[in-house]
Design a protein around this nucleic acid. Structure first.
Lengths: 208, 208
DNA sequence: GTCTATAGAAGGATAGAC
DNA sequence: GTCTATCCTTCTATAGAC
């Protein structure tokens, strides 16, 4: 691991093809199970070209994870309508966020970062910063604003945000992470998100 | 993967040494990063002996995960004192369970099963059955009993159990899973568990 | 920059002696 | 059952031509 910045955008078309192919393979099969031959073959380039662009397997892997982290930053959730109740405001956001977590790409990303976190600690940190931590910070601010409006009682908005997100990452997410059972459809996702928001509001909602 | 039963107890001393060494290596480094040479060396046996006991790397891995699942079955939580309040009854259980999740061995087990779940689906299922699912079932029954005693309002005890466990698997568990930051000490674990139980009781506690 | 071809190392699995 | 020594495949990485 050479740990360079590597934040530059993919220059040539071949480089983009390599990044796309490698992302697909690493995220679906994990770091160890993917060979550089497989990446080159899928990208339609030779191995030498691959090594010309990215010096080694671990640097290619780092570039993939960094790129996926940048994508995650773009996925900022939307807040609900201003005048609604706490439940009505949170539910669309919750559905959207749980749906994002349960995408194959998000699950694969989470799996590979969990698996290789000990060998690539800086990548695990980058993932956390751009994914869970960014979401947590955004939600903390939003909850604090709602608390100021009197819609909920949250003396510690960061803790409330943690617990809200934890409620969303419940059994359904655990099973999906383990790859057990069928992938939940939209209705199941909405139902699970609604259950989480309902419980959150019962715990934190301002008593009317 | 030959998918045999392999539930038998480790017979000889060498077999036990192999299992112990392999468990340590697989759980700390992951499946792909561990070579059979490394296992043999750590166990103090030759590779041929290793292959004589377990026919292949994937079968050795399966035996390790199965064994760890059996261990997990032994870790049944204890319920709190009968006459106490809901919070007082749940808190010791919550601390104990979160402490178990945050052990290096539990975290490593979770990481490797998440990482290899797609290649060893039956192992992911066994892990889930003996770990999360067993805990969930136990807690569901306990919560139903408390609901019958009027200590909480839970029309769907299984959902309540899910959410209780999800609240415990919050930011602290996520960070530990990713290997980020220092390992939480006992006080931090107790505080996180207390926050989870407090929120759970606010959402589900019988209004007195 | 890109290719073909290959070096060099590591890993999974086995043969054969004891 | 256990060991030593080895086979064969696969993998990362590079050399050299264009």
């Amino acid at each position: 691991m050479s740990a360079s910045a590597e934040t530059a955008a993919p220059a040539s078309a071949k480089a983009r093809a390599i990044l796309e192919a490698a992302a697909e393979l690493f995220i679906t099969q994990g770091y160890g199970a993917v060979s550089m031959d497989a990446v080159a073959k899928r990208a339609g380039v030779s191995k030498a070209t691959l090594y010309a662009h990215f010096g080694a397997k671990d640097r290619l892997f780092a570039a993939i994870i960094q790129g996926a982290c940048l994508e995650m930053r773009g996925e900022t959730p939307e807040m609900g309508p201003a005048g609604a109740s706490l439940y009505d405001a949170m539910l669309p956001m919750a559905i959207r966020w749980l749906g994002f977590l349960l995408r194959e790409r998000s699950l694969g990303m989470f799996r590979v970062v969990v698996a290789e976190g000990s060998r690539f600690p800086e990548l695990a940190r980058a993932f956390h910063e751009n994914g869970p931590r960014a979401t947590r910070q955004w939600l903390t601010g939003w909850l604090a604003a709602q608390a100021a409006r009197g819609l909920l009682q949250a003396p510690d908005p960061a803790l409330a945000a943690d617990q809200c997100l934890a409620l969303l990452r419940s059994e359904m997410f655990l099973q999906a992470t383990l790859g057990i059972g069928p992938m939940p459809d939209e209705a199941a996702i909405a139902a699970s998100a609604a259950a989480a928001v309902r419980t959150f509001c019962r715990a934190y909602g301002a008593v009317g």
